[in-house]
Design a binder for these strands. Structure first.
Length: 101
DNA sequence: GCTTTGACACTAA
DNA sequence: CTTAGTGCCAAAG
């Protein structure tokens, strides 16, 4: 039995490039409501290389937080590189970029 | 094995 | 729009 975190990582890897997912939906996709545990798992960051943490955002459309290098700024930069426009911590056309499982 | 914590979500005012 | 309060669950200590 994989741990919750491992399942989350696995799901996150299924998110196509140029798309994002939310903590809530991600948690739900692994049959749990532990959206908080998802973020916690990211920060625990067991596998920073394989896991595109920057593709995980809040359900409200905000980018949320980030613990890598430059914090949220770096996260936004990465999102933009995927083709997602971000304006002041808010994702433009967020619903368009959300990947639904 | 119990307590605290957190990269969140939702509702109400 | 903002603040405040409540709920949620796994991981760390």
């Amino acid at each position: 039995m994989k741990t919750f975190s491992e399942k989350v990582y696995d799901k996150l890897r299924t998110v196509p490039k140029g798309k994002v997912t939310t903590y809530r939906d991600l948690a739900r996709s692994v049959n749990s409501k532990a959206y908080r545990a998802v973020g916690r798992a990211m920060k625990s960051n067991k596998n920073p290389v394989k896991i595109p943490c920057f593709r995980v955002v809040k359900s409200s459309g905000e980018v949320g937080e980030y613990s890598g290098r430059g914090g949220v700024k770096e996260k936004i930069r990465k999102l933009r590189r995927e083709g997602i426009c971000v304006k002041g911590n808010k994702i433009i056309d967020f619903e368009k970029f959300v990947y639904r499982f």
